[in-house]
């Protein structure tokens, strides 16, 4: 097996989520199955690769969705991609969420910006067996109502029994009826006791820093705070060195890492 090789993946659909975020439906050949929390390396033809976490349900095997924010070279090239084009993927890499540890507990999912993309895959995986958890709490913050990803899906999600949804935007508009403020405002008045649940967070570094601080204040145990760590990555499988965080390598020991494993570091979020 050559771990450096990618497989072809046809682009089936491109959904425009926000002005800077799109969701791509890919059909890798042969199919590439993954567990929630794992990521892939996606090749933009002629430009290079970047790491992304699938945003679709791991139970759908024949295709996968990836939700991508345009920030630089590779992601800009991906925005030129149209249905019918061919990309390449390799993976999956990283350690899946330990969802069996979540059974019988409250699961709090905290997302910021495009950080909801990887969490959507976890959310969909949990929905597959929704009665196994006390309740799933999906809390999401975006900059403005226009920046909300999956707005088209939230209505459906809100109807599911055993799911609680809260949303906030930093800056609202005249139609916005939900919370205004940074995502941590959603953590006030939690409807369950922190020792009866666990929290999973993904978002920009500042959000991660403040969300972790708030979750700790609320009384979540260190090992019950699951953080998606973003580091520079090249190989994805623990060889190239780039993603080191203390003793850990985000690609093979993460990318989701619980707070107890990194709290000794000076500032894991920079």
């Amino acid at each position: 097996m050559n771990p450096y090789e990618s497989r072809q993946a046809k682009v089936k659909e491109v959904i425009i989520e926000t002005p800077t975020i799109r969701t791509f439906t890919l059909e890798p050949k042969p199919a590439l199955s993954f567990h929630a929390g794992q990521f892939i390396e996606l090749t933009a033809p002629g430009v290079g690769e970047a790491p992304f976490t699938p945003s679709s349900s791991p139970y759908v095997e024949e295709s996968m969705e990836v939700t991508i924010m345009k920030v630089g070279r590779v992601t800009s090239k991906l925005f030129d991609v149209r249905p019918g084009d061919t990309l390449a993927v390799r993976g999956p890499y990283g350690v899946p969420y330990e969802t069996d540890r979540y059974e019988g507990r409250h699961v709090l999912i905290v997302g910021g910006g495009v950080g909801l993309a990887p969490l959507r895959s976890l959310f969909l995986a949990l929905l597959h067996n929704v009665s196994a958890y006390k309740k799933i709490h999906l809390y999401y913050g975006a900059r403005t109502p226009r920046d909300i990803v999956y707005d088209r899906l939230f209505k459906e999600w809100g109807k599911i029994k055993n799911v609680e949804i809260r949303r906030s935007v930093d800056v609202g508009d005249k139609n916005w009826k939900e919370k205004v403020g940074v995502v941590t405002v959603l953590l006030d008045n939690l409807p369950f006791k922190p020792n009866d649940g666990l929290a999973v967070a993904c978002g920009p570094p500042v959000m991660m820093k403040f969300a972790t601080k708030r979750l700790l204040e609320l009384g979540f145990a260190d090992e019950d705070i699951y953080l998606s760590m973003e580091k520079n990555m090249s190989c994805g499988f623990g060889k190239c060195g780039h993603c080191r965080l203390g003793e850990l390598f985000c690609c093979k020991d993460g990318p989701v890492i619980t707070w107890d494993r990194i709290k000794h570091l000076e500032d894991p979020f920079v």
Partner: peptide, 9 residues
């Protein structure tokens, strides 16, 4: 041991 992967079309 560090390395970087890059693609050439």
């Amino acid at each position: 041991y560090c390395f970087l992967l890059y693609d050439i079309p």
